[in-house]
């Protein structure tokens, strides 16, 4: 076992290094004093932890605003997607109905549709709807594009909750609503939470639509705000950019690391199969 572990870690080590490398770069750049940014040759060490970088960055890059925008868009689109997905996933896992096969095919197809191919049409649609340059345009599109994933994931979890529990509740005297609320829901909440968090992360990280729909910097979400700090600029304040990147990614990365085993389970259950 020890020998095997060493061997495996040895084989994995190049990959591990390459994965962790950008985190290291992010970290040392974010904390380093500005003067040490362009020393040549660059070094991994630096003279002091310059916490002030974060405070400066917060103001200069309008980080708070972008954070709020990202939160608004991600929370609302996730809530919308979940509200629409939960009944659909329940119907898929519990009922036979005409057109079920066609509907599942449609879901698979929308799961494959990427925003980029449709982005021009989407933009024109939002112009027509008068939603361009509003965060709600992102809420709608993120919800629509996330739904295929959330429905698929939810229905594969719902299918593991035995139907006869609900049937037993009906026989015990519960109506449909009561059996949903008191028997099904308590058992489904963990799966819903996990699915919602993955949907949230997807929205949090989205770039193309946010770049396209939002024209004024007040409405930028975090990825676009950070991108705007490096795109087409003469002078890039890399320590601010890295500080912002770190703040924007670290919480998500931690939550994700904690949840990734659910994703594997979801796949084994048939999210992909």
């Amino acid at each position: 076992m020890l020998k095997k572990s060493l061997l495996f870690w040895l084989i994995l080590s190049p990959l591990v290094v390459v994965i962790l490398f950008p985190f290291g770069v992010m970290f040392v750049t974010a904390f380093r004093p500005r003067e040490e940014l362009f020393t040549y040759p660059p070094t991994w060490t630096f003279s002091e932890f310059r916490w002030a970088n974060f405070a400066e960055m917060w103001v200069k890059t309008n980080f708070g605003r972008a954070l709020l925008n990202s939160l608004y868009v991600s929370v609302l689109s996730t809530v919308l997607a979940m509200i629409l997905s939960i009944p659909a996933a329940y119907a898929l896992s519990r009922y036979r109905f005409p057109g079920k096969r066609a509907y599942r095919t449609f879901l698979l197809m929308t799961q494959m549709m990427s925003p980029i191919v449709l982005v021009l049409g989407l933009f024109r649609m939002m112009v027509t709807l008068g939603l361009v340059n509003t965060l709600n345009s992102l809420v709608l599109t993120y919800a629509a594009f996330n739904m295929a994933f959330t429905i698929w994931m939810l229905q594969s979890y719902f299918s593991t909750i035995p139907r006869d529990l609900e049937e037993a509740a009906w026989i015990d005297g519960a109506g449909h609503l009561t059996s949903l609320l008191r028997v099904f829901l308590p058992l489904a909440v963990p799966a819903m939470a996990v699915t919602a968090i993955f949907g949230f992360i997807n929205s949090w990280n989205e770039f193309v639509l946010a770049l396209t729909m939002i024209r004024s910097s007040d409405g930028f979400t975090l990825p676009v705000q950070i991108y705007s700090q490096v795109a087409g600029r003469y002078q890039i304040e890399w320590h601010h950019v890295m500080a912002a990147t770190m703040l924007a990614t670290l919480p998500v990365a931690i939550v994700f690391s904690w949840l990734q085993r659910f994703l594997i389970r979801g796949m084994a259950l048939g999210a992909v199969k």
Binding site: P162, L165, E167, A168, A169
Partner: peptide
């Protein structure tokens, strides 16, 4: 029920 269907 066959599988008891106890509320877990």
């Amino acid at each position: 029920f066959q599988n008891y269907a106890l509320y877990p």
